[in-house]
Amino acid sequence: MAKIIIPTPLRKFTNNESTFETKGATINEAVAELVETHANLEKHLLDDDKNIRSFIRIYLGEEDVNLLEEKGDTKVVDSDVISIVPAIAGGC
């Protein structure tokens, strides 16, 4: 099964689990399975239209899924690592 890495700030919604094993065949299916299992995560990852929130990026391995041709429909295989990446910024 492919593995999703949960970023530390969102682990309180996954019972402190750092990773999630998914049977999803595509990125979208993998994310859907994750939020189905950990319902409290949904509002932090998805907007009202069930799209990934603008300040969250999804990586498949080292590739930004937004830059892949099939985006969320990109197929996932067992050895894949999917990362959920929040935006980090600030300043004085």
């Binding site: 970023p7 929040p86 935006a87 300043g91």
Partner: peptide, 28 residues
């Protein structure tokens, strides 16, 4: 001089580094 930003790629690598080294990413 007044702003910083960390690229999503660097963040992705940081969480992978933490997992591989039995550490927790606790902040920036």
């Amino acid at each position: 001089r007044r702003r910083f930003e960390i690229s999503p790629f660097d963040y992705m690598k940081a969480e992978q580094y933490a997992l591989a080294n039995n550490l927790t990413l606790l902040g920036v």
